[in-house]
Simulated assay, not measured.
Amino acid sequence: MDWSTGELNPCRKNYLQTLRQAFIDRGHAVFNAHQNEQWGRGWLAPEVCTPADFLAVSNADVLCVIVGEPPSPGVMVEIGWASALGVPIVLLQEGDSVPALVAGIGEVTSTTRCLLPEELTEQSLADILTTVEKAAAAQRTPRVTEPVAGYPKTLLPYGYEAAQQPIDHV
């Protein structure tokens, strides 16, 4: 975002529109929060955009997100929703690293990570589309159903082992 204007940087907007249009041209329905908020010209109130974004993730066959540097807080929330719902995820990374919990998201739901090219060519767009289409075919089910080996407390409530005596205050 260009916070001085409140709108998305024109180069970034063009990049995202090109990527979005490639999906549409291939016959896919696309929900894009930037598009939904007019690329920064029509910000929606949190009580409007949050349910809209959640509904989009809930109904998605795949969540394809760009993990920028720094990562967008909104994208991090969407990744959390998708993983909780078992929606397959494609992380298009702008750099080599992602936040630690995002790096491990493949242990929770089907996840594909790939580097996002600086420039979108016909070949790079085709590669991205193929990656996302393959990911969308993955089974929509959370994969963590029992404690993780080597860390059996994973599915227990926080403080479970520490609560040896009744807690009389919080």
Results as ranks from 00 to 15, higher is better:
25 D>C: 00
18 T>P: 07
149 A>E: 11
45 A>E: 15
45 A>P: 08
30 V>N: 04
138 A>D: 06
145 T>N: 07
87 V>L: 06
98 V>R: 04
149 A>T: 10
62 V>R: 01
38 Q>M: 12
167 I>R: 02
50 T>Q: 11
36 N>F: 09
28 H>F: 00
124 S>W: 00
119 E>T: 11
89 I>R: 00
167 I>C: 00
17 Q>A: 11
48 V>H: 12
146 E>Y: 09
82 A>M: 10
126 A>N: 09
145 T>C: 01
120 L>C: 09
49 C>S: 14
62 V>L: 05
56 A>G: 12
134 K>T: 11
66 I>N: 04
40 G>I: 10
162 A>V: 08
163 A>Q: 13
34 H>Q: 12
142 P>D: 00
90 V>W: 01
88 P>Y: 03
127 D>F: 08
55 L>A: 14
149 A>C: 08
137 A>N: 06
121 T>N: 07
91 L>W: 01
51 P>K: 02
46 P>R: 02
79 I>C: 05
20 R>F: 04
69 E>Y: 13
106 G>V: 01
125 L>P: 01
41 R>P: 01
140 R>Y: 05
34 H>K: 05
120 L>Q: 06
45 A>H: 14
102 V>R: 00
19 L>Y: 07
95 G>I: 01
17 Q>I: 13
166 P>N: 06
157 P>T: 04
49 C>I: 14
106 G>M: 06
2 D>Q: 13
47 E>M: 09
16 L>A: 12
36 N>L: 12
88 P>T: 11
125 L>Y: 01
2 D>F: 04
111 T>Q: 02
138 A>E: 01
107 E>W: 14
36 N>E: 15
15 Y>H: 06
161 E>M: 13
104 G>V: 04
83 S>A: 15
77 V>L: 08
141 T>N: 07
142 P>K: 02
50 T>W: 00
93 Q>W: 01
70 P>G: 10
118 E>H: 14
87 V>S: 03
86 G>A: 14
122 E>A: 15
29 A>C: 09
153 K>N: 14
124 S>E: 02
50 T>A: 11
55 L>F: 08
54 F>L: 12
130 T>Q: 15
104 G>W: 02
103 A>G: 09
163 A>C: 12
9 N>E: 13
131 T>K: 03
22 A>S: 14
97 S>D: 04
88 P>A: 05
161 E>G: 13
67 V>K: 02
42 G>L: 07
47 E>S: 08
138 A>H: 08
115 L>C: 08
114 C>Q: 14
148 V>F: 14
61 D>W: 04
13 K>H: 09
73 P>C: 03
25 D>L: 03
82 A>G: 05
104 G>A: 10
123 Q>N: 10
66 I>E: 10
56 A>I: 04
37 E>G: 10
130 T>Y: 10
65 V>G: 03
14 N>P: 01
87 V>K: 11
138 A>N: 10
45 A>N: 13
2 D>G: 06
78 E>S: 05
91 L>P: 00
124 S>V: 00
53 D>L: 12
57 V>D: 01
61 D>I: 06
130 T>G: 10
26 R>F: 03
156 L>H: 08
57 V>C: 02
64 C>F: 04
43 W>F: 11
1 M>F: 08
25 D>F: 02
158 Y>G: 02
104 G>D: 13
90 V>A: 05
58 S>C: 11
158 Y>T: 05
